[in-house]
Nucleic acid binder design. Structure first.
Lengths: 192, 192
DNA sequence: TTGCTCCTCACGTCACGTGAGGTGGC
DNA sequence: TTGCTCCTCACGTCACGTGAGGTGGC
């Protein structure tokens, strides 16, 4: 009959000792017994339960849900449970994609505004969120004008540095992201 | 010189009164003055600042970051800020995609196990997380065997209902998701 | 007098992180 | 005696939600 100390178990599972304390306190995983000095002793059954807890947590369940599943789950419909999680993650995915799309567009706009300041950023963001559409013709022209004026004051070294930074950034984007960005650029250009 | 009551502002921005109380308490947005009875009076400048707060929050910034950007942002590099947010959302996106992929695979496996119980679910999840690879030959055969036996006990109505439920589910998936699911199915099938 | 909006505490959420102060066996 | 692991409080995190109990003008 082997038993585990809390530290060993933490090491083996990648959890922290504090997390195991937490699971104990909320009644999710209470070790079968205590050793001398009040040390928690985890039995093999405890370890099996912990594995289940970790597995379910990896699927996005909260600790309370995990407790329900493990303790009174007999009547639950597993497919309904999975579908629920799927719906949740799908929503999160959609939100993250929207945010990402907006951030990429924002990056493109900052590229059009040389010497972009925090104020520029705030202006653009306010514009994007309140208008919910690409820049207007005047706004674009204002940006282009600012850009020309600023570029005149830049040294060749500064221009080289900016270009290099941009390449570093682009190198980290996937083909899809590049494509998406170009579409945004195109949408921003005034009709020629 | 117009001024706003807290409730009007909440209504207009979609925030709650409590959120505005919170912004006041943490010093993010303190109304310029107070009316009779201590009522907060928001000036037009306050409203403008609030719009900026809302806009920045929509881009994933925390309240503390927003305060920094708005109050001491002059020296910040807006591109670095945006790239940072982009990195964060990219990570979240990847995690959500992994989870989603696993959930879809899980759903496929549950389809292979007729009369799937919560115990079945836990077993499969444990298998997926600890092994990090598709089902082994024996596991697949066990599932198939269970399925045959269970199917024999099902009524035609039950079978029809299951099939209908599956169609409803499939109808909500995108083409990419369907494709991904099929790849998972294929990977799960034992070599013929 | 009844409603409505407003106010200030102050605890709760979620899954722990992070000390603080102390014990017990090698 | 020094280290190491373990223990129990108990506050902090993040952006508010949710009562509780009270005030002031229409």
């Amino acid at each position: 009959m082997t038993s585990w100390q809390i530290g060993e178990l933490a090491q083996a599972t990648g959890l922290t000792v504090r997390a195991l304390h937490h699971y104990d306190r909320i009644g999710l995983l209470t070790p079968g017994s205590r050793g001398p000095g009040g040390h928690r002793r985890y039995s093999e059954a405890d370890v099996r339960r912990l594995h289940q807890v970790v597995a379910l947590r990896g699927f996005g369940l909260g600790l309370a849900e995990i407790a329900t599943v493990l303790d009174d789950g007999a009547e639950l419909d597993p497919r309904a449970l999975v579908r629920q999680q799927l719906d949740q993650v799908t929503e999160r995915l959609a939100a993250a994609n929207r945010l990402r799309r907006d951030l990429v567009a924002l990056l493109g706009m900052l590229d059009n505004a040389v010497e972009p300041s925090i104020d520029t950023l705030i202006e653009i963001i306010e514009g994007m969120t309140t208008m919910d559409r690409p820049l207007t013709q005047e706004q674009f022209e204002q940006l282009a004008e600012k850009r020309r004026k600023a570029a005149e004051r830049l040294s060749p070294e500064q221009l080289a540095e900016m270009s290099a930074e941009r390449e570093r950034l682009m190198a980290r984007l996937s083909p899809e992201e590049l494509e998406e960005m170009q579409r945004h650029r195109a949408a921003m250009l005034p009709p020629t």
